[in-house]
Design a protein around this nucleic acid. Structure first.
Length: 577
RNA sequence: CGGGGUGUGGCUCAGCUUGGUUAGAGCACCGGUUUUGGGAACCGGGGGUCGGAGGUUCGAAUCCUCUCACCCCGACCA
């Protein structure tokens, strides 16, 4: 590829709209351009990176016998109505009507469509298992698209679906996919971690996310400093302390005028927040739930959703309090609380002699104990864990928190979709059974952003060689001088014929501009040809990642550069997987 | 959805508070000359009607109203 004809409009300054480094550098390096909020065009170099990641994915999918297909982005509403998701998905689904007023959606995902295709063709257990995948555009009308390619409304996703005859078979498909994902992200040069995750709207019980570790990540994960436990914040939990050995005391009401928040009560009464239990009132449907949780903790609403069996709930708002005169805002407590579903975080069970609201204005109760002063019917894990909490898996470990970008998510779905759609096969025993399904996604365009978040410096992008738009860039300082042109062209041709992806900067521009662009775009290897080259007989080579500079004699340059390319390729090794 | 912010040549921004010459700068672009090892210098040139609509005014980028787009924060933690 010749720079003189390449469409890569690089920018000296970051457009004001970009906040995070991947967004800034993708724009500055001329790899993407914005069309609307959360909607981007890939320019030639950006597309090359996307394609490189796609091809790694294809190779690894093929390796586990997944087969590629391509489904339409435009999907009829009927299928979505069968699984009720037409109604559940809400405004996040892009909807439209055709000329006959029929409802359609731009697919946010493809479970319905793939199930429909497979159920019409696959009738027997003999045809199972089967895993199909596609790499395609998805549409999600996000509440708040942001950070360039990290959270877009239109984005590229690899989605795969397995159809299995049994749970054991599903686990095999799932495990295969897990190892394929590990290989894919390793080959992309990511530092990542697989974590236990919540399934959300997709459904199913078992799921794991693949998180690229980066400060700009939107998600928080927790992992153990001792064992291999790792989980997303949505599901991360902790081992409870041993029950307190304190002697149970008699509860009593104390005056706490104008002391409503945990902070206020804590300092007013001189007790730590860990000795206070707060009572949060949630409204779901037309019912109320009181959630008990330790004073220094926050409720994990993902977990609460599981307990309440609904996603549609919120903390009681200012005006809604007026509808419930028995509830005293700021002083609600579990003792004597009526007409409200009481759910307690399991950590309350190990607490003794704690403080709660007294259900009277300006009063709290101290020395309260479960069993003595009130009963709990529903225990659940409802808290957001904190760094330093005890690991739930091993005895010794403590949890560490980190920020991550979710680039992959795998699910054991079970029969949610097959049952809803009547998607059955005939098993060995002659019985009709619903397929047992798994689904497996990779955010391909998001992975492009994640790679940059993890690999950049103040000059620009530092692509891992496996996903770089070109592996080598030849910078010719004076392409209009015959001796430099000759050397550069011969190296360009030689590397090309060895299968190296090589670009040549043959523009008539100042040296500074060419160096700056090469660093910005992030080619892993820069080959510099200038007047010095011709006089010294040596070609200078710079490794972008380390800044290391090497000199190769002219007559061996192509060969040595080729060896360097192979060395960098092999450094992103699969041996760890 | 709520809150905050920003819209001025391709990009980054100044001008707006306190309306008043022809709307500015740097970068980018075009032509020319000299340059070419870390975003070159000089000379000359083109390009905007100030997001959009309406209003106030003798006069609006500047004031008012509405609207659109984009960016950020938050999902009421008692």
């Amino acid at each position: 590829m010749r720079f003189s004809i390449l469409f890569t409009p690089t920018l000296k300054e970051s457009p004001a709209e970009a906040e995070v480094v991947s967004h800034k550098l993708l724009l500055r390096a001329g790899m993407i351009r914005k069309v609307a909020a959360g909607i981007y065009a890939f320019l030639p170099l950006g597309l090359r990176v996307l394609r490189k990641i796609e091809n790694i994915i294809r190779e690894e999918m093929d390796r586990i016998n997944a087969q590629e297909l391509l489904m339409p982005a435009l999907q009829p509403a009927d299928l979505w109505k069968k699984t009720e998701r037409w109604f559940q998905y809400g405004p996040e689904m892009m909807r439209l009507k055709d000329r006959n007023e029929r409802d359609f959606a731009l697919g946010p995902t493809h479970e319905e469509l793939i199930t429909d295709i497979v159920m019409k063709e696959v009738r027997s257990y003999r045809q199972l298992p089967i895993t199909l995948y596609q790499i395609q555009v998805k549409f999600r009308d996000e509440i708040r698209p942001r950070f360039g390619l990290m959270r877009g409304r239109e984005f590229i996703m690899k989605d795969a679906y397995s159809f299995n005859a049994s749970i054991e078979e599903l686990k095999k498909s799932y495990d295969d996919m897990y190892s394929a994902y590990s290989r894919i992200f390793t080959r992309c040069g990511f530092k990542f971690r697989a974590v236990e995750a919540a399934s959300g709207l997709i459904g199913g019980k078992v799921s794991q996310e693949f998180m690229v570790l980066a400060e700009a990540g939107e998600d928080t994960i927790y992992y153990c400093d001792t064992c291999d436990y790792a989980a997303s914040q949505d599901v991360a939990t902790t081992r409870l302390e041993e029950p307190s050995a304190e002697e149970i005391k008699q509860s009593e009401i104390v005056r706490t005028p104008n002391q409503k928040s945990v902070e206020e009560v804590s300092s007013f009464l001189g007790v730590q927040a860990e000795k206070i239990v707060k009572t949060l009132i949630y409204k779901y449907g037309d019912q109320l739930a009181a959630v008990l949780i330790r004073g220094d903790r926050d409720v994990n609403e993902e977990k609460l959703a599981q307990v309440l069996g609904s996603n549609d709930f919120h903390l009681l708002t200012g005006t809604e309090w007026q509808d419930y005169p028995d509830l005293v805002q700021g002083y609600v407590g579990p003792v004597g609380l009526r007409g409200v579903r009481l759910v307690a975080d399991n950590e309350i069970s190990v607490m003794r002699n704690f403080v709660v609201g007294a259900n009277k204005a300006g009063a709290h109760m101290i020395n309260v104990n479960v069993g003595e002063d009130f009963q709990v019917q529903e225990w659940a894990d409802l808290k957001i864990v904190k760094a330093g909490d005890r690991c739930p898996k091993c005895k010794e470990g403590a949890l560490i928190s980190a920020k991550g970008i979710e680039v992959g998510h795998i699910f054991q779905l079970g029969t949610k979709y097959s049952e809803a759609m009547g998607a059955m096969f005939v098993d060995e025993d002659g019985q009709q059974k619903p397929y047992i399904m798994g689904c497996y996604g990779i955010g391909v365009s998001r992975a492009v952003a994640a790679a940059i978040e993890q690999n950049h410096d103040d000059k620009g992008i530092i692509w891992p060689i496996t996903i770089a738009p070109y592996e080598v860039s030849i910078i010719v300082l004076n392409y209009d001088r015959e001796e430099q042109k000759k050397i550069a062209d011969s190296i360009f041709d030689a590397l090309g014929s060895k299968g190296v992806e090589v670009a040549i900067d043959d523009r008539i521009e100042s040296a500074g501009k060419k160096f700056a662009d090469a660093d910005l775009i992030g080619f892993p290897i820069q080959v510099i040809i200038g007047s010095r080259t011709a006089s010294s007989g040596n070609v200078e080579v710079k490794i972008r990642a380390t800044g290391e500079r090497l000199e190769y004699p002219l007559d061996k340059a192509a060969e040595n550069i080729y060896e360097l390319v192979q060395k960098l390729r092999s450094e992103i090794s699969l041996e760890a997987v």
